[in-house]
């Protein structure tokens, strides 16, 4: 399934790019992410907890940066397993940054394969969960950028 969306940050494109690539800082803005560790400069291991009503998923997996075109385009691959739900997510995450007059527009495309039991839960739920996470991510990033600027 394909999930697409965008959000706008009030910061120049370069600043946004730098924040995006500061994986440790950035990952704090993804709701549910924990225990992030660096494998090498391009890959990271972490855990992600998602809760939709009574259904809880705890994914453990890796993020690998596949393509970096500073400060415009970033492609990452995510492979994560949830043992309890016998499920797996394999996703390609593409993010495109665009300079606006008063900030930066971040457009993202997630091409995800959900496998196993959670797959029948449906696109509608996945889509909405991803969008909520992106919105939360956007506002968290804005806060960090604002805090960074004032600091």
């Amino acid at each position: 399934m394909k999930i697409e969306g965008s959000f706008t940050l009030e910061a120049p494109i370069r600043t946004v790019w730098d924040y995006l690539l500061n994986i440790e800082e950035m990952s704090q803005c993804i709701p549910g992410v924990s225990a992030l560790e660096t494998i090498d400069t391009k890959s990271y291991r972490g855990e992600l907890q998602i809760k939709v009503g009574p259904i809880k998923a705890a994914f453990g997996g890796t993020v690998t940066l596949l393509e970096l075109e500073p400060p415009h385009r970033l492609v990452a691959e995510i492979v994560a397993d949830d043992r309890r739900n016998a499920s797996q997510v394999k996703a390609t995450f593409t993010s495109i940054l665009k300079s606006l007059a008063d900030g930066t527009e971040v457009t993202y495309t997630i091409d995800a394969n959900v496998r196993g039991r959670l797959a029948q839960f449906g696109q509608a739920v996945a889509q909405s969960t991803a969008k909520k996470m992106a919105a939360a991510f956007g506002s968290c990033m804005q806060e960090k950028i604002d805090a960074g600027e004032t600091a």
Binding site: P54, I55, K56, R84, N85, A86, R117, L118, Q120, F121
Partner: peptide
């Protein structure tokens, strides 16, 4: 809830 249990989507 029984369907969710059977499909193992929840595990209370």
């Amino acid at each position: 809830i029984v369907l969710m249990l059977q499909q193992k989507l929840i595990a209370p």
